[in-house]
Design a protein around this nucleic acid. Sequence first.
DNA 1: AATGCTTTTTGTCATTTGACAAATGATTCT
DNA 2: AGAATCATTTGTCAAATGACAAAAAGCATT
Lengths: 189, 189
Amino acid sequence: MKEFIEYILQFGNLNQQQLDLISKKATERVLHKDEYFSEAGKIAQEVGFILEGIIRVCYYNNKGEEITKYFIDENNLVVDLESFDNDICSNAYVQAITDCKMLVFSKKDWKDLLDIIIPWEAIVNKIISRALRQKIERRSPLVSEDATTRYLMFLKIYPNVVNRIPLSYIASYLGITQSSLSRIRKNIH
Amino acid sequence: MKEFIEYILQFGNLNQQQLDLISKKATERVLHKDEYFSEAGKIAQEVGFILEGIIRVCYYNNKGEEITKYFIDENNLVVDLESFDNDICSNAYVQAITDCKMLVFSKKDWKDLLDIIIPWEAIVNKIISRALRQKIERRSPLVSEDATTRYLMFLKIYPNVVNRIPLSYIASYLGITQSSLSRIRKNIH
DNA sequence: AATGCTTTTTGTCATTTGACAAATGATTCT
DNA sequence: AGAATCATTTGTCAAATGACAAAAAGCATT
């Protein structure tokens, strides 16, 4: 919980009473490897915060290949925004790729907090828009670089991820095959 | 101006007085082909809205290659958010690729409006976060598809752009060379 | 029409990556 | 330890793309 409070306070100030209100609504939950936090075809009902572990967001393209859109690691929010905000079906799976310890807020509690704690909305907006910008910054350069550069960028962006998850996920994140990734790794070392 | 009002009202309601306040702060400006709306190394000082024309955002990667990050066409906001919001130097060029007719707000006016018109902030947040999400949705799939598919996606996303700008920009957007793009076009037709 | 200028297409060859199959390595379970 | 399972690497060949140069096409100006 401490981690979450610290995280929040990076984006704005709240008094102890407000922080307590928020804390009270959070539930701790363990999500096991391969379990879904939210699924394609369903409406996202929760907001999460990763205390420990790694989650990925993935979907299936029109050829049926599984594509990993991005990874989310410790001390970050997890929510399928498009689906959560607009109550529409998601087209992505949000899946634990290691065992995860999380804080979870139900949609109702999350919305209540936004109504009750006025400055909370501004903070959430900051958090969300920073996260969105970060995603763009991270994904965009992947288009215009060769696979080796992409892999090196991945290592920089997610320094704590590479040894904790299957290479196949990294390959699908980079848009290359597992064997290509394997060859790239061989050439780097 | 009518276009801008319409655009705004998609995201929330404002009364006539509020709309007038906003209108009064907007300046119309023509940006000629190849001119910059904002530049790398400088701090973005304005928010724009494209009435007519096409703008692109580009940067130079570590090999010195020019990479087009995305295109912005009619009836969309133009602002280098990261730079504008945080008063930090941008690392991207925002450049007209056709002659453009725009509405422009100075940073001061833009911020004043946010203070004066309370519901305006929520609307701007919605606009920005929708734009950010759109960017991710558009760029992200480019990573995992082959070049032909990427070109077809480009055509879908920007149906009104392809015949109005040089192919070299499209190639750099797709992360391929001009000659590859040329060959792809040949195979499609 | 002729001239320059820029954009786009082609051609050739080298390199990267994909597809598929097989081999090796790691991990878990009994 | 052995078997089963899954993850990773390697091998081979085909296809896609890049690099570079040259040709062709398009466009504006005269």
